[in-house]
Write a protein that binds this DNA or RNA. Structure first.
Lengths: 331, 331
DNA sequence: TTCCTTTGTGTAATCGTTTACAGTAGGATC
DNA sequence: GATCCTACTGTAAACGATTACACAAAGGAA
């Protein structure tokens, strides 16, 4: 591809003039500008962003490291972040960790090597060495949904505890006593928080959730399905089950469908994360909705600010909300 | 952040030696190598990929330009492509065009400036100037799902015509005569193909689809909802409706839910694109399934090959398949 | 006329790597 | 003892832009 020298030679000017023509801001006479632009067009010249980045120490690139885009929650934030990035002239490079700290570390390393201007991470574990590396490298960091305790960076997330507590209250009011939970990995912030809030909420009201009715999944579909089957095979199966995210909820619903267990007649069902199709299934699924849009907007607002080295951003913690539909019934 | 010179100075060697230590391949004595690595670790040195890319003319980056990640079809391919990219040491930068040729052009321009090693595009229109630019720039290009006629690049897609034809056959066999279609933009390859196959399939069997029962949407949710409402308000509403993608299907289902029109009693319903939750709604939705996985695998296989400048890849055209569930009924 | 300012342009250093080329030291070979 | 490898290491020139600095021309002010 043609480079700045080719254009300069062809147009009979210096490379400086060509550079100025394209980076704007500086004085270039209209005639020269015109000529440079036509020549550039003819040669198919396109400024080399790599060289530009090297010189200006600015890649205009952001990194987004999440467990999995296939999770509708992360799909939505990925979309929101990408929009915001594009709008301010940044590109977004994406990484799926599958909750694997190793993979997460690899992505972060690559992104640091690529000298991204900022990093948005939803870490797999509550402690993590490679995220301190980001701090050390001085790259702006933003935690999304989850965070790492010993790293000092702003967090954008929704607090689910209150909503989970309200859900427990609701289930108990409906007369349920045999509660079950399909949890995500307790070592993740969101996994631990949801499980903790559920168990404590129940305990607080005099109901204990025995170990065999706490199944730990990995936030992915298949684990939800397995977990639900496991619960159904108990000698004393639960009368109500809470699933800790949308992907596992999908799996659990499939298991229920396959085993012909009816909701809510045979079992009451509720999920963390609301998704677009929950109102459409039969019965419509009661769920805890995270303010996905608002989270995306918050990230969008903070990120460029950080990338441009503005002042330290404050964390944003929004509230998740219980949306009652038809999947829970009085026992 | 520390650079190669800092490490070289601190370790008492030349930059060449440091470079060789990190890029492997070359001879570096074990003691020196060891020393360089510890020093680098101490200084938090991380090779600058920008500089490396400039020198080697290789960014190890791929661009993926799609209409919208929120469309489950594209979410799945994005995931598959990202996996394949990561596995071979490439990063993926993502762009959502919202079916807007302007936005598409902007993304492509940025990605070319960034000197990506390859580009996967699902173009908004069947003709497009900026995609010829990619060709001219000599950047490996792969079309996904849709393509541009006058640009010579391999395509990975599923042909839906046969499946749509089978759907029409099925609907007519059930006795439907008042067919309707909620189509995507006919100027996209997939939009045109699905609409065309539907109308021709009906015509071939002696049924015509009048203009008022052909509503053109934009492949997005809201347009599906609007379109369905429009169809329901006809003096002669359809007895069966075919929606041309999953997002519009979601919208249409919402409209049906809101207006309390029952499926399949009041109207038969079928959609292009199968999604994970279609089996779970009431009744389970009859749909045409694209082999998403296989498409992803095909892209994954071809892409690195292209990026590394291997031989020209052949197009891959798979078949979509009609999955009959419970949303269509005999009139 | 002289001097200053404004506008436009060029020269060359720089960003952080890779890599061709050259050189050195030590051991093996003749 | 001369010669030739082999294994390592260093020097310096790229890669393609940006930008500080210098300078020239033109116009206005004194």
């Amino acid at each position: 591809m043609a480079n700045i020298k080719d254009v300069a030679r062809e147009a009979g000017v210096s490379v400086a003039t060509v550079s100025r023509t394209f980076s704007g801001a500086q004085f270039v006479s209209p005639e020269v500008r015109e000529r440079v632009i036509t020549i550039a067009g003819r040669l198919g010249y396109r400024p080399n962003a790599v060289a530009r980045s090297l010189r200006t120490e600015n890649t205009r690139t952001l990194g987004l490291v999440i467990p999995n885009v296939m999770n509708p929650f992360f799909t939505a934030v990925a979309r929101a972040v990408e929009d915001a990035a594009m709008e301010r002239g940044y590109s977004l490079v994406l990484g799926n960790t599958d909750e694997d700290p190793e993979k997460e570390a690899r992505y972060i390393d690559v992104l640091l090597q690529k000298r991204v201007n900022g990093l948005i991470v939803s870490p797999a574990r509550a402690t993590s060495w490679h995220l301190s590396e980001v701090e050390r490298a001085g790259v702006p960091l933003l935690f999304l949904d989850r965070y790492v305790r010993d790293v000092d960076a702003p967090v954008v997330r929704a607090d689910g505890s209150a909503a989970v507590d309200r859900l427990v209250e609701y289930l108990l009011k409906l007369g349920h006593e045999r509660l079950a939970v399909i949890s995500g990995p307790p070592e993740t912030v969101s996994g631990g928080e949801r499980l903790g809030a559920f168990i404590e909420g129940a305990a607080l009201r005099g109901i204990s959730v025995p170990e065999e009715r706490i199944v730990i999944g990995d936030f992915r579909r298949q684990s939800g399905r397995r977990a639900m089957r496991e619960l159904l095979e108990l000698k004393e199966p639960p009368t109500a089950v809470f699933v800790a995210n949308n992907l596992m909820a999908l799996g659990a619903l499939q298991a229920l469908e396959e085993t012909k267990v009816r909701i809510p007649e045979d079992i009451s069902f509720a999920s963390f994360d609301d998704v677009s199709w929950f109102p459409l299934v039969n019965p419509p699924v009661t769920a805890i909705a995270q303010p996905v849009e608002e989270l995306g907007v918050a990230v969008a607002r903070m990120l460029p600010e950080m990338a441009e080295g503005g002042e330290r951003q404050e964390s944003v913690v929004l509230k998740a909300e219980l949306v009652i539909r038809g999947s829970c019934k009085r026992v």
